[in-house]
């Protein structure tokens, strides 16, 4: 480097651009084939990192406890998030309420690596989601179907995850959502070009993104799975169905042996195509998290229906 060059001159010399769409989606791509684990303190974060998590989600309470305790669930205390950020070298994510851009601004100021605009927290706006293009920090959002996924990408989400039904330890909703997303991707990819506008209308999705899927046969951003994963087999199932990585919320630290289970789920995501290896890692993991039958939950207890 030549001395006496101002940082401004350096930036124009190298055409430096920070927080581009490519660096945002790029981080999501770096997390592929990995497990993102919910943690509520520095100690859990270290256990997750040691097990091989690619990132942690910093929370005050895991979804199972949010569900049990009720009331309004908000962004976590920044102090807890900061402690977790200081405890590990892997990326740290944190959740804001749907539409609560002030919480998102606080999370960006803290320097979290990814913001989850999450239905697990109580929505702050029932009409509008956060305009995610306005942030430097990349966002992940939940979706139940392709239309919802594309609306979130249209708003700037750099990663999509299935919503599933968080805190239940029941994989059925994540399966439903992933199958719905993949089915419509296949449909758009094989549809004749002159039907794309009608499909966009039907899905209530941005037309340009429908065209992009028609051309590439895949979601424009990484497609992960969340909401109900409790075992290595659950993680493998979601990978088979098209997930590129998985989030495990309550599934690890609400189980009887978090250290072993965390490691087993990490191995299962890498080796999901190898039944013998899955059998090996699934042995003797102890009790899975306490679970719930989604069909017995009352409408107001469902988290997946929050947001649109």
């Amino acid at each position: 480097m030549t001395p006496n060059v101002s940082s401004h001159e350096q930036e124009s010399r190298y055409a430096v651009q920070k927080a581009t769409w490519r660096t945002k989606v790029g981080l999501a791509e770096m997390l592929r084939g990995g497990v993102i684990m919910d943690v509520v303190n520095a100690e859990q974060a270290q256990i997750a990192e040691e097990a091989g998590a690619v990132a942690v989600m910093a929370l005050e309470r895991v979804p199972a406890d949010i569900r049990r305790e009720g009331g309004v669930a908000r962004m976590s205390d920044p102090l807890i998030i900061e402690e977790i950020m200081n405890a590990v070298t892997i990326p740290v994510m944190a959740k804001c309420r749907i539409g609560h851009f002030a919480e998102a601004m606080i999370l960006e100021a803290l320097g979290v690596d990814f913001i989850d605009e999450s239905e697990v927290l109580t929505p702050a706006d029932e009409e509008h989601h956060v305009n995610k293009h306005a942030f430097k920090t990349p966002f992940v959002c939940g979706a139940r179907d392709l239309g919802e996924a594309l609306r979130r990408i249209g708003e700037g989400a750099a990663m999509i995850r299935t919503k599933g039904e968080a805190g239940t330890g029941n994989i059925v909703e994540a399966v439903r959502h992933m199958r719905a997303i993949m089915k419509d991707i296949r449909r758009i990819h094989s549809a004749p070009e002159d039907e794309l506008m009608a499909i966009a209308k039907q899905l209530q999705a941005p037309y340009d993104l429908v065209v992009e899927i028609h051309q590439t046969g895949r979601l424009p951003v990484p497609n992960f799975s969340a909401g109900g994963i409790a075992t290595p087999a659950d993680a493998a199932l979601m990978m088979w169905l098209g997930a590129e990585a998985v989030f495990v919320g309550s599934g690890i630290f609400k189980s009887s042996d978090p250290v072993r289970r965390a490691r087993a789920i990490v191995d299962a995501v890498t080796y999901y195509r190898e039944p013998e290896m899955l059998a090996e890692v699934s042995k003797g993991l102890g009790e899975a998290m306490p679970s719930l039958d989604v069909r017995k939950l009352a409408e107001e207890e469902l988290m997946a229906v929050r947001g649109w």
């Binding site: 190298y14 055409a15 430096v16 651009q17 920070k18 927080a19 581009t20 490519r22 660096t23 790029g26 981080l27 990326p91 960006e108 320097g111 979290v112 690596d113 990814f114 430097k136 920090t137 990349p138």
Partner: peptide
């Protein structure tokens, strides 16, 4: 952290 991620020639 991620917020400092960048592209450059």
């Amino acid at each position: 952290r991620q917020i400092e991620s960048f592209e450059a020639d």
